[in-house]
């Protein structure tokens, strides 16, 4: 009998601690599948964040080193510069990347560090109990914006992918989601492209994943998936924001023609 579905080699046989309907476990699995497919498990080093994914090393069967809140890209920089032939990825939430670690993330991108950042955007602080995130959308109720986020008081949600795509050091940036089978497949393809960019030595790649957090959104998993389509992706449009390899290919073709 042919086995069509199983645990990726780059995952440990541990049961996820994530809440029902959470997007982290899907993202973890996709990364592990990509690592398997690219056959880079033995040379990959991951940097998990502070936040719900802080225990990611319980799930990934690759070398991992924890970073303090927001410092993942700095740590990944140190690792990658010492071991340039290893594949280094940092896994970060919205608070980690867009608030406390915005400097580390922005500058690693601007230096064009040859690393991959997986950015989980669920518009809320999950682990600490549902506080407002830098990516919470206007009107979104959280425990620290109880009447809904107001731009005059709390500013606007930060569009990380759009901003980072302006930096010359970045090579591949795509915003995806994991709220449907189709979007999950699309996300996996994006992650694979990002890792491929790193393997090819092109520079900084970032995949932003709009990810459901039913517990802190106070919705059912199904409603959460719907909310991503109906509300969240209006603020954060899905799609490829930067694709240097594709642009280069186009340029070559034009040049040849």
């Amino acid at each position: 009998m042919k086995k069509v579905f199983g645990r990726p080699k780059s995952m440990k046989a541990n049961i996820f601690h994530y809440c029902a309907g959470c997007g982290h476990s899907i993202a973890h699995r996709l990364i592990a599948e990509v690592i398997d497919e690219l056959d880079i498990r033995g040379i990959t080093i991951g940097v998990p964040p502070a936040g719900c994914a802080v225990l990611a090393y319980n799930y990934f069967d690759v070398d991992m080193i924890e970073a303090q809140h927001g410092r993942g890209p700095a740590m990944a920089t140190g690792i990658k510069r010492v071991l340039p032939d290893r594949i280094v990825f940092s896994y970060q939430g919205d608070g980690d990347l867009a608030a406390i670690g915005i400097a580390e993330s922005f500058h690693a991108a601007n230096r064009g560090e040859n690393i991959t950042v997986i950015f989980i955007n669920n518009a809320v602080y999950g682990m600490t109990g549902g506080q407002m995130a830098p990516t919470s959308i206007l009107g979104q109720k959280t425990t620290t914006s109880p009447t809904g986020r107001q731009s005059v008081l709390e500013g606007h949600p930060i569009r990380v992918s759009e901003i980072f795509s302006l930096l010359p050091g970045t090579t591949y940036i795509e915003r995806c989601t994991v709220n449907s089978p189709a979007s999950i497949l699309r996300t996996k393809k994006a992650i694979r492209k990002a890792f491929q960019c790193q393997i090819d030595g092109l520079g900084f790649s970032l995949i932003e994943i709009l990810s459901p957090c039913p517990t802190n959104w106070k919705m059912t998993p199904v409603d959460s998936c719907r909310w991503i389509d109906e509300a969240m992706s209006k603020e954060f449009p899905l799609g490829i924001l930067k694709d240097v390899p594709a642009e280069q290919k186009k340029g070559e073709r034009r040049h040849a023609g």
């Binding site: 080193i65 410092r71 700095a74 740590m75 990944a76 140190g78 690792i79 010492v82």
Partner: peptide, 14 residues
């Protein structure tokens, strides 16, 4: 802040 965490990464990497 970034400097010391870069150092941590580099140290871990040997």
């Amino acid at each position: 802040v970034a400097a010391i965490h870069m150092v941590a990464g580099a140290s871990a990497a040997g």
